[in-house]
Design a protein around this nucleic acid. Structure first.
Lengths: 205, 205, 205, 205
DNA sequence: CATGAATGAGTATTCATTCAT
DNA sequence: AATGAATGAATACTCATTCAT
């Protein structure tokens, strides 16, 4: 129903590459990058191994392709979309929401991301694609925090750069954390909010 | 003590296993778990591959062995050592310090940890060893936070469990973060402190 | 002239085959017969691999085609052209000159020839085309020598058949020899002349 | 009876390498260097492909090994052995005899040599081993000719360097020539002798 | 305990050739 | 006549593991 329909015999290269990337991602989730086999991908797409190599010449290129689709996903997903017209608080909530959506709806993407990040350390090709994504994300959150500090939304003593890393890391940590339920995600977000917003209730006497 | 007369004969097998684990860990840092080759380990230890298999019969056992040494390391390292006689604030600082020491002095341990965690998702053997370590760590920090909330050290609205995850994730995030310098680590810790402690300065008039 | 209306439509196939053969020969010079790839040829001709196979159905046929063009070249080149109206000495000089021209001007032809000869041993198709060329050449030189012996131009004790082989082999040996310069070629020809002509200076009394 | 006896199970690496080289040479004679397959070699030696790779890690190394055995053969064979104590005429006859022996008794060696020489043009590894052999041989014959010219054995107008190339090329040409019989070889040698020696019969009165 | 040699089951990649359009 | 896509059969090479000594 989705991708592996053997109805229309000859596919266009672009479709095939898409299908290959999708199969590769699913396999990465299942077996990790190190367990990724060209034969498995070909089989899952329903083509010959040689055909796979016709569309994606080498395994390195294949991983590059996967990395590219990751970037596209992140772009398509609003995660990296600036929302300058909104207030810092709203933008922060969007970050939380987009991340939860990505985790709960498109779980694969984050899992693959995690795999690729680990590998990025030793694989310059992956690194070249992955680093910018993280960097962009980090910078976006830092901007949100910066704006929020300026307009008094967030704590005045908040340090945007480490603060952004804290937010990102916490969200990522959730994925590997002990309780991957939406309820726990909400608790985590609440904690982050309290960590970022000024403690209003203390004001007074 | 076992077969021939001398005293320190017994250690041989155990020593070998230790040496093998050490070599394996170094190689994991260099090439990742997926790049780990029994031959390379043997060569680095200075023994034959067959001999390696004599001491550690299978690769799965080998990774299990490495995981075991990880647990031992974390135990030896004060990270998981309870320090009930100290104040919550002191214990938190100890966590920061121990983590920084592990990162800056024994960088390998965290790198291997990271590799194994990624793999734990699919490898039940690794998972069985790694999960408890993380769980223990998480629980310890949660305890610190809980105690600190109780005695007023930390924000009263702090939620210990997600808070602990936030602390852990942020520390872990530092390792992969954009700036792995001690200075940045300190900024990050400062940020965490501000996130956990009550905002004193707000108290006025 | 090529693709639109004009008259010369019919030649297309033949032109294609010629272009294919030419590209194949260039590639054989560069990478040897064993390094010859249909895809490379197609690319160099500027057509699709499938199109190549349309014009030359199989690789064996392709090599046969190349061999054919070799024969045509040798025919076109005066090497195999009888020159009965000239004196044996003149005809021998023509052989030297034609060979040098082929080596220095059309180096490819001899290189391809050499490649194909080596392969002829095991490939009956190539053998069928190549042997006759060599045989013809050998027979022509033997005829020159025979005629020259008869009219006193060459040594009376010269044995035409082995003599011809000696001349051919020496010329061929030059191509692989230590010094492929025109000067050395001339020295080699001089040596052959002294080996074939009677030693005049000895005649005394 | 010769090499492929599966009696003694574990062979020493040196023996295996020898057997592998021998099998490779036979296969090169049969199918050429380009038709050489590691599987075929392994099968002929009676070992697993992986075992082959254990002894000779790569195909390049394999061809290097074959080239090495060629050099050893040529050394063992008297072809490259200087015989300074003999007269130039005797030394020349030795060259003829050694070559014929190599061709008629150890036909493989020259066939392999021929294959490797063709490939040497594009393969620097082979070239590095083969060139020196040819160079040495050429130089030895040139020395014989030089000595023979000096002591009046050979024509005074003989040019040693091209002369040596002529002798070598003619011998090599015999291998590919139209008639590979011992009788024809003798005719060819006779022709070479007449080409090198002064023409005594001309001296009369 | 130790080792050199051996091996089965993979693993990415290549290549001539074919097919549907 | 031409082509993009597809494929079967190879091909060199790898690796954890085993065996005989």
């Amino acid at each position: 129903m989705t991708i592996t329909q053997p109805a229309t015999k000859r596919e266009t290269t672009d479709d095939r590459r898409r299908a290959i990337a999708a199969a590769a991602r699913r396999l990465i989730v299942e077996k990790g990058v190190e367990g990724l086999r060209t034969r498995d991908i070909a089989e899952r797409v329903g083509i010959n191994v040689a055909t796979l190599h016709y569309h994606v010449p080498t395994k390195e290129a294949l991983i590059g392709l996967v990395a590219d689709t990751m970037r596209d996903d992140f772009r398509a997903q609003s995660l990296l979309r600036p929302r300058d017209h909104l207030s810092p608080a709203e933008r922060l909530e969007h970050e939380f929401y987009d991340f939860s959506e990505m985790f709960f709806e498109y779980g694969d993407t984050l899992a693959v991301m995690s795999e690729l990040m680990e590998r990025a350390r030793r694989d310059s090709v992956i690194n070249a694609v992955m680093r910018p994504i993280l960097a962009k994300w980090h910078q976006m959150i830092a901007a949100i925090l910066g704006d929020g500090i300026a307009d008094g939304t967030f704590r005045p003593d908040l340090d945007p750069h480490p603060g952004a890393l804290m937010v990102m890391s916490t969200l990522i940590g959730f994925c590997r954390g002990p309780d991957p339920s939406p309820q726990y995600f909400e608790r985590l977000c609440a904690e982050l909010r309290r960590a970022l917003y000024p403690q209003i209730q203390v004001v007074r006497d």
